[in-house]
Design a binder for these strands. Structure first.
Lengths: 364, 364
DNA sequence: CTCTTCTAGTTATACGTAAAACCGGGATCG
DNA sequence: CGATCCCGGTTTTACGTATAACTAGAAGAG
């Protein structure tokens, strides 16, 4: 693999040579049949072909002619040029989905849901793996190689969205603080409820001393979790909550959990439940516990968040919160279409679900 | 969430109403400045704007005028309409990436790599989560909402590609049988070498009785693994290989491994190493071993494939084979660009790397 | 019989851009 | 001094489609 440094590209374009590596000439594929070719073959005008292909020929074209056009189209292997169509219509039927990182399965699933919903509206979704994806693509709108009708931004801080707003396109925010943005529509997960369910599940199992292995990312979803956890504990007397921040990977989770489990005060002060902000962190927490000679869940319960495949691959299987990622993408797409149709701004919050498994048990 | 059945859509479009839910009218955003607007503001012709913005004004436009154009463009917030540009140029600078499932992190990483490489060529990548993604999108070319310059297909059986070939576009195949297709270019992983490394690693640890927990998918990558494994064992006397097929999930891996570990012949005939076709299967295999009271790696070694984050989240951490997924996507994109530039068909095989970790140890 | 309406199309135009072809005038050259 | 060449632009055209505006003929209305 040749390493390619894609450093600063000069804006003035001064020097010699092409601005980009050449991708020249048309390939054989460019010999596609156009609507005019079909028209010629069918002995009609181009407009008629357009009418027939667009299924808009109610009373405008006879059944005979329409049949001839369709036959000709099929024989020539005609496919309408979507670029030309987009230009003509002024709409590309394409949405841009901005996600932090596609390798996070949550976002892959959001994409899947969005793409599925888009297909129902004969729309497409193009991805922009965003800000933190440090690739050379700087401009979301240019990275989409087509005109865009709208933008769906998932889990992006409202502040980081200024360049998206700049485009002036309809914007739907997913998984972001409701009300904080002036986006016409938002779709959120009821994260607070998820955290509440986790907490109550553990309280019901008799736990009183908790540690929150908290993602050290300053975003809405994690702030909500911390708040919901604190509130849920408030209802029960004699609870203790300790918070340990961690980056979102296994190793950090392990370190944070180790800190929580070895805090001064001895075994009697040790938390009996580790509430983690993600399954990945929970995996680390399990490691930490085992390394300290503690059994999960007998000595310490561990809970995750997200319900990744990882959660059921671990041993013991993780108690976690299932997030309807596809549904988020789907709802986001529908919301965008609603906005494009001139609908009123709307917000939705999707329910999440506690999945009790083997990593949580009665308090020791 | 409203459930939406997106069943068969009639091709004839007979009935009443619109074919698709409406997405009508232009949004406020459509009031974008065009090159003509910029021209007017700068007091030049549209052609001049095009020249300046295209960085092709070597000796054609004076520094003064170019400056005026750029100023006007900035003030009007001008962004060239990529759809129009694509139409004019006959190339969309867009490639279609066909993957089996984006939720498989391998493919998410392939996409990431392809997108990064694409950006270097000022190209874009649009996804088509393919055949098995049973969504309503049937037509890869229509699902991309733009004209395409080429197609990159990852891990798709050559037979399933007929409708991709039909488009007549340049095609690059990733991770597929070299020579089997007439694709102008292919990029493969040296899977055989990976399996060889695993086998030799285990042989060196003294293992002689193996079980191959094999993906029950009939694709090139898995056929190669089985063959390479068998060949690698051939060099050593007294080795035993048993094959257990499994679907690509944890539960199936567990069942297959359980079958392998409880086969008749008692502990002396039991395999001491489980070679799994994927980390997910390996996770299942570890579960099976532990459930049978066997310790990993003391009683039985387990190896995976892929080096997903899962591999290092498990306990013990998995010995596995790291696949340079981003590099595959990157090389695929570069190969496509080469083909578009009229280059000769080429094939590449990328090296893979054994990552020895805690799940493999000396034979008991 | 004339006027309207309907049918089944056609002609013409616009979307926004890139680039080929053109063009006026000053400098250069033989 | 006339022909040539560059410089710095402008005019024009084409990409492929969708659709508004038009039209020729037939049928029906009054």
């Amino acid at each position: 693999m040749t390493e390619v440094q894609s450093g600063e590209r000069e804006e003035r374009g001064g020097g010699g040579g092409e601005r980009w590596p050449t991708v020249r000439g048309r390939h054989a594929a460019a010999a596609r049949a156009t609507s005019r070719d079909v028209a010629r073959a069918a002995g009609v005008s181009q407009a008629t072909v357009s009418l027939v292909m667009g299924e808009k020929w109610r009373g405008r074209v006879s059944e005979r002619t329409a049949g001839a056009v369709r036959t000709a189209a099929r024989e020539l292997g005609y496919r309408p040029n979507l670029t030309a169509r987009s230009l003509r219509l002024g709409r590309a039927r394409t949405a841009l989905l901005v996600v932090p990182a596609l390798t996070n399965e949550f976002f892959a699933r959001v994409y899947t849901g969005a793409a599925r919903a888009a297909a129902e509206y004969d729309m497409g979704v193009v991805l922009y793996p965003s800000p933190e994806g440090t690739g050379p693509a700087r401009d979301p709108f240019a990275s989409a190689r087509a005109t865009l009708d709208g933008v769906i931004a998932s889990s992006i801080a409202a502040e980081a969205l200024t360049d998206l707003r700049e485009g002036g396109l309809p914007l739907v925010m997913l998984d972001s603080e409701p009300g904080r943005t002036d986006a016409p529509a938002t779709v959120n997960l009821d994260i607070a409820d998820g955290m509440r369910q986790v907490t109550e599940h553990l309280l019901a199992l008799g736990h009183r001393r908790f540690a929150h292995i908290a993602a050290d990312i300053d975003s809405w979803t994690f702030r909500v979790r911390a708040r919901a956890l604190a509130e849920a504990l408030r209802g029960t007397a004699g609870t203790v909550l300790r918070t340990e921040p961690a980056a979102l990977d296994v190793a950090s989770g392990r370190l944070a959990a180790a800190r929580a489990l070895t805090a001064p005060g001895g075994p009697d002060a040790r938390p009996t439940a580790l509430i983690c902000d993600g399954d990945v962190l929970a995996a680390g927490a399990c490691k930490a516990a085992r390394r300290l000679g503690l059994r999960v869940p007998d000595d310490v319960s561990v809970t995750g968040f997200d319900d990744l495949p990882l959660a059921s691959a671990l041993e013991p299987e993780l108690t976690t919160v299932r997030l309807p990622a596809e549904a988020v993408g789907e709802a986001g797409m529908r919301a965008l279409v609603a906005v494009l149709d001139g609908g009123a701004p709307a917000s939705a919050a999707l329910p999440v679900e506690l999945v009790p498994r083997a990593s949580s048990g009665v308090a020791p």
